[in-house]
Amino acid sequence: MNSENILTIKNLSFEYDSGFSLKNINADFSKGEKIAVLGSNGSGKSTFFLNINGVLSHHHGSIFYKDIEITGKNLDILRRNVGIVFQEPDSQLIASTVEAEVSFGPINMGLSEEEVKQRVNSSMIEMNIESLRERPVHYLSGGQKKRVSIADILAMRPEIIIFDEPTASLDPVNCKMFEKTLERLENQNITTIVSTHDVNFAWKWAERVIVFHDGCIIADDIPKNVFSDSGLLKKANLVRPVLMEVCELLAVRGIIAANKTVKSISELKEMFL
């Protein structure tokens, strides 16, 4: 993984009229990182994403994209380089057909017709939606809309992609397809941030876990350290991943080493074959 820092957040605060706020958020994101963001509904995850994507303008603190400080005048830097796939596709999809939808971002980036075509085709193949090219967006199923919304962002090729509950409307086959997409993004050294309630997915996939609670970041560490902190899990209303508990049980019985970390079922199977 490239350790180049591309996004820095310093003492960021944001407040809605309702009173809910982000409070003194500090975080750095490096090129190629795989980060899971956890926290209960209303903990501040989505508000944080909208601030670092440039949809919302932070009230206090600083955001730096590489060496550029983001202000109200250059929010387009974040919007071009930090893509977000929303939890509800209908809040993102605006065009009449699938092809027009996936084309919208690249066209507005001022790319050539040939480059737009190449990006659209590549993204549609990536998300297995080529057969939907001429379909009206509003006639698609929830899972199809989710795949189109992901293709939207892939076509813009940002350096950071945020997925807000990306598998919420996907069946198991498309969930596997999404995991393959994450693998390809990793191979392209794109920073991926995935908001999820699935601790088992976070354990399997992420190399870093950030936990939000009441508008604050209360943990930012490797998965093993986060999920070993029972007090933290209770405060954030989280549970431990199943594989972590299985490995601890096997270690107690002397079947595997006490410090062994197993990330997937396939990895566990290989240990006993």
Rank of each mutant, 00 (worst) to 15 (best):
A100N: 13
A100S: 10
I150M: 11
S131I: 07
F20E: 10
D152G: 15
E33T: 07
I35P: 01
K224G: 00
T191M: 14
L233W: 09
E4V: 03
N5P: 00
T167L: 00
P172T: 02
P241H: 07
V209D: 07
V246L: 14
E69M: 10
V209A: 06
F227R: 04
L249V: 10
E113L: 11
S264M: 03
E130M: 15
I217F: 06
H60E: 14
D152H: 06
H197Q: 15
E183F: 00
H59V: 00
M109R: 11
S103G: 02
K31S: 14
I153A: 02
M109V: 00
E101F: 01
Q87F: 06
N11L: 02
L111H: 02
G143N: 09
E267Q: 12
F48V: 01
E186K: 14
A257D: 15
G254N: 08
K176D: 13
N108K: 06
L250D: 05
L170T: 01
F49N: 08
L75I: 08
A219E: 05
G19S: 09
F227G: 07
R184P: 00
A155P: 11
K204S: 15
E248Y: 04
N51Y: 02
M127Q: 06
L50F: 13
L232N: 08
M177K: 12
G39C: 05
V246Q: 01
E186R: 13
N200R: 12
K269A: 05
A151R: 11
I129P: 12
S21L: 06
C216M: 12
K235D: 08
F20S: 11
S112P: 05
I222W: 00
L273M: 10
S57V: 11
D17T: 07
V252E: 15
I210G: 01
S131D: 12
I63P: 04
V37T: 08
N41C: 02
E165R: 01
G254L: 01
L56Q: 10
L12R: 04
M124V: 11
A236D: 04
S62R: 12
V226A: 04
K263I: 06
F20V: 10
